[in-house]
Amino acid sequence: MLSRTADHLYWMARYTERAENLARMLDVTQRMSLLHAGSEGNESGWASALTIAGPEAPYRAKHGEVTPAGVMSWLCFDADNPSSIIGCLRSARENAHAVRGTLTSELWETINDTWLKVRDGDPAVLAGSGAGEFFDWVKFRSHLSRGVTIGTMLQDEALWFARLGTYLERADSTARILDVHSRRLLAGVSDVGGASDYYQWSALLRSVSAFEVYRRVYRDRITPLRVAELFILRADMPRSLHKCLNEVTELLDMVGNRHSGETARRAGILHASLHFGRIEDIFAGGLHAFLGDFVGRIYDLSDRIANDFLIPKH
């Protein structure tokens, strides 16, 4: 397969996943802010959202102060911001368009349709209670794209590179969401174990569709340690880091070429650390340090994959 074709497929999937994760992240930010209305935690939640989503300087240049309305408009519908939801969906569509002949017509139509709807959508609806609905819609369209991808595409390189994009993006995003929010929650709250704390952590769980999952797996009260374990180490949790690395290592095996041995080795080491890791050890070494290191390694893998198979990004 042409490197460029693989590159477009990979980024099509990454941007689709990124839009979904942005919606999830903003959704949890909004839920958390409702719990804290008027207090300090409110602003810091929105600032965290900005940190997760990309560089902060362009936001500051346009909006100045971090305000809920400013962050929402910047990260949802601002076409000038390539890291906004609309920016990601546009990039997903552009990448799909460039390799339209490689996609099934169902997949192309799904991605194109998503883009047309969001492009023609009304940002004003977003204000207030409309936001939750919008986030649900973005998640739903992402589910649809993924389902159509798996349900219609030939099981060959085209699919593998798309999946590789999905799982690398998801690993990166899950790690960032957990890192930024856990840091804030573990540092800033006065009533650890109290009611507010409970709602904050459960909102975080909901951001990765894991609230019910947590209940089923642990049948216990919500603790930071367990939440982190679920996010990082549980291989049966579809958005966990471990699950993502299961997929990444397997996919790298399938697409491997003469140059990609080192990339596979590094992915394998990262995978092993999750496979055999213990959450107590991770906490002992510092959760933030661990996640920071993890995000760095995902960045390294992405870079190496671009060099081995795709179009290198300089």
């Binding site: 397969m1 490197s3 693989a6 590179f161 140059h259 795709l310 179009i311």
Partner: peptide, 10 residues
């Protein structure tokens, strides 16, 4: 003195 295309397999 040859033309090559860039593929995922080199």
């Amino acid at each position: 003195e040859q033309v090559f295309m860039r593929t995922t397999q080199g």
